[in-house]
Simulated scan of single mutants.
Amino acid sequence: MTERVATTPGVYPLPDWAKDDLADLKGHQKHDLIDGDEGEDVVAVYERAREEVIERQQSAGLDRAVEGQLRWDDMLAHPLAVHDSVETRGIVRYYDNNNFYRDPVVTGDLTFDGDIAAELEAAAALTDSDSLQAVVPGPYSLADLATDEHYGDDADFLAAVADFLAGEVEAFPEVETLFVLEPSLVENPPGDGEDERASQAIDTVAGAAPEGADVVVHTYWGALDEKVHAHLLDADFDAVGYDFVSNPEDNLYNINEYGTKDSIAAGVVDGQNTLVEDAEQIAERADWLADNTPATDFETVYLTPNTELFYLPYSTFEEKLAALGEATDIAEVKA
């Protein structure tokens, strides 16, 4: 019997009170203080906000809790934006939407940093290891979002980013699940040769996960090209994430035509739209997926929003968490 697990890709919106508090600290605006060495007052705001979003996930009944990535003003580019060998320069559009991030320009070796591990250690103190989920950008997406002025070769740069992320992941505490977010595989798909290197880079990061952790490579904003999908499956991880909000038919085609991993993550909640799906709708989408993949008996289906959630107003974010947690309860009742 397939297990349904309620979770999210993380990268949450800040609680409204936290936005206000940060605005009062030195006139804080987006990016002003996020450089890896924030002052004590700023750190205290983020600590309190972290506690709140973890409690929200727990009270919503989610099966996995993430740290929230509330400091990630630069979204998936954050791990580079706070690195000592990276200069943050001009503002760049974040994929094809109205969000922006600072261009992380790599000017030196990408050595170990520990920023994500420190956040995760703080989250680990607030929840159990068997429900804790780590979140990292995928190596292909992180390299795609960055500018290289050090390595000088696209293949070398991707490999360096993968090694950097693997080093960060190796420092993680015990977790149940690791979500590796790879929207660039859809938004800016790798070409011939590069698709194989992207798969190898993901394999490098997945191989660094804490022992026993399930690794989910989550793609979104559409569907993977067939060849990219095939190369992705060559990497050694546990589940591919598919966006069944933006492009359900093509993602379904990839699964039924080419197969997938033994488990999948199903993006069945819209991470960008303020319309809140109720629990019954979410459960019905999961049922639709099961009905339309008759040849595949998944071990686990991670029910998740299709994208990061920072796009949403905080109150809407809370409502979507509650509906998502309730959806797996409905599935258990039906079973």
Rank of each mutant, 00 (worst) to 15 (best):
A60G: 06
Q69M: 00
V43C: 00
N251S: 13
D21I: 10
Y94Q: 01
E308W: 07
E174D: 05
T127I: 00
E319D: 09
V5D: 07
P173W: 05
H78R: 10
Y46Q: 08
P13S: 11
G222W: 03
P189D: 10
G152Y: 13
Y151P: 10
L178Q: 07
A118Y: 04
D20I: 13
G10K: 15
V205R: 02
E121L: 03
E174G: 00
D163K: 02
Y253I: 13
D35P: 12
E67G: 02
F237D: 02
G222T: 07
A198S: 15
Y253S: 15
L233A: 04
V333S: 09
Q272S: 09
P248T: 11
A171R: 03
L178V: 03
S315V: 04
L62Q: 10
R71M: 05
P79I: 01
F164E: 04
N188R: 08
F157D: 06
E326K: 12
G191Q: 01
G193V: 03
A125M: 08
H78M: 11
D41A: 15
V301N: 08
V175F: 05
D103A: 14
V186R: 08
L70K: 09
L303N: 01
G222V: 00
A6C: 05
D195P: 06
V217D: 14
L132H: 00
A230N: 11
A162Q: 04
N97V: 05
D234C: 06
L185C: 02
D20E: 15
A60R: 05
D41E: 15
K227S: 03
S131M: 06
G167R: 07
R48T: 05
E211A: 10
F179T: 09
K320W: 14
G68T: 00
E47I: 07
G271C: 07
V105Q: 12
W17T: 15
T274Y: 09
L110I: 12
F237S: 11
E277S: 00
A327P: 12
D109F: 12
G61H: 02
H31Y: 05
H150W: 00
L321H: 07
F298L: 05
A171H: 06
L185Q: 05
P79S: 11
T204I: 01
N99H: 15
Q272F: 06
N99S: 09
W221E: 06
H229Q: 03
E170F: 11
Y95W: 11
E299C: 01
L110A: 13
D195V: 09
N273Y: 00
D128M: 07
G259R: 07
V105C: 14
L233T: 03
L126C: 09
K26E: 14
W288L: 10
D250W: 04
T328M: 15
Y101L: 02
A235R: 14
A166N: 03
E168Q: 02
D234L: 03
H31V: 06
I330S: 08
V42I: 08
E38L: 11
Q58K: 04
L25H: 14
D35F: 15
P183F: 01
R89I: 14
S85M: 15
